[in-house]
Design a binder for these strands. Sequence first.
DNA 1: GCATCTTTGTACCGATCGGTACAGAGATGC
DNA 2: GCATCTCTGTACCGATCGGTACAAAGATGC
Lengths: 193, 193
Amino acid sequence: MRINEVPAAVTGRAETLPALAEVFREHGYAGASLALISTATGLGKGSLYHLFPGGKAEMAACVLEDIDTWFETNLYRPLREQDSPETAISDMFDAVESYFRSGRRVCLVGVLALGTSRDLFAEAVRGYFARWVSALAYALRRVGGDGPEGTALAEETVAQIQGAIVLARALDEPALFTRALAALRSRIATAAG
Amino acid sequence: MRINEVPAAVTGRAETLPALAEVFREHGYAGASLALISTATGLGKGSLYHLFPGGKAEMAACVLEDIDTWFETNLYRPLREQDSPETAISDMFDAVESYFRSGRRVCLVGVLALGTSRDLFAEAVRGYFARWVSALAYALRRVGGDGPEGTALAEETVAQIQGAIVLARALDEPALFTRALAALRSRIATAAG
DNA sequence: GCATCTTTGTACCGATCGGTACAGAGATGC
DNA sequence: GCATCTCTGTACCGATCGGTACAAAGATGC
């Protein structure tokens, strides 16, 4: 391990990201204390600051990047590149349903967007939603062909997903999230058909 | 001031609530430190704990109650009781547009719903959204007459409002919020007409 | 003016915050 | 086996956390 520079470190980082993400999701950026992070990851402060010299801010930034990559790979790219836009859109709803655990799991990017920490991660937050909307709008235009209509429907769809997470959690009724996705599917099918 | 029991205290409380609400909105429950609260309200710790012996938790609870009362008076009751449900719904959108400052202001109840602090205020958060949905569903049923359809559309509408706040803030594009409200208005008009 | 009660600023409490320092354990190369 | 480098647990730092104690200031009643 003398020649190569950051092999084990990178590996170790990737493995902690899911636990880190969960802490930030549940407690927000301000509420995620190092003590919580330490227990959630099973790592002491020494290890944490070895992996993330930048502290909490770097942890959150890495988590955001990880999430962004996942969405880019599993949602945005298919929406843009898959041959059948109908299939891509349907796959998107499947992915959303399972990623957000049918409404039981919160969207970290949405949480950050609402807080003051938005300023810290403004660009990442903006990019995440902007690329979601634009990829979906592109797919909608391909399937429907209604010119600029796609963007409005894409915005409404992404907003509906975010709002459904809020509402499902507030009412403690995960079924509401699933229902909302089903309604969106049929709305889009109608608009396209 | 010997006979009556809590006159000045109550007055003082009500006057601090807007500033308190703003702090909780911007920083969340965990992020709203007493130092921030103190500067925002212009009150020292002595005064704050005199007005709210229960500390932060009581402050947040009072803010939530205040918000709930406002929505009950200005939105829910009109939706339930106004003669014309169409007017009530249109007034609701006007109120929402101005209350949320055209998407520049965040919904505190939504913020709390996403965080861990939801557990502390679960009942208040649940009630706020449950009554919003049910009042709107009732108005929609009165205007449309499609049986149980109203609840689904009401849920979608409230979720869309919440999601539009998230998205407008994330993209730093308040116009998106206004656009979303306009789309909802016409969707409801279509569904009703 | 005096006594009473309310209101408020300040000092302080222990706990916890994010972050640093560093010694020693553990792995690796030769 | 020994030197080198990576990793990690622990102790500690100053700052800030939410909350308390309390004395002085301000209002009020008579």
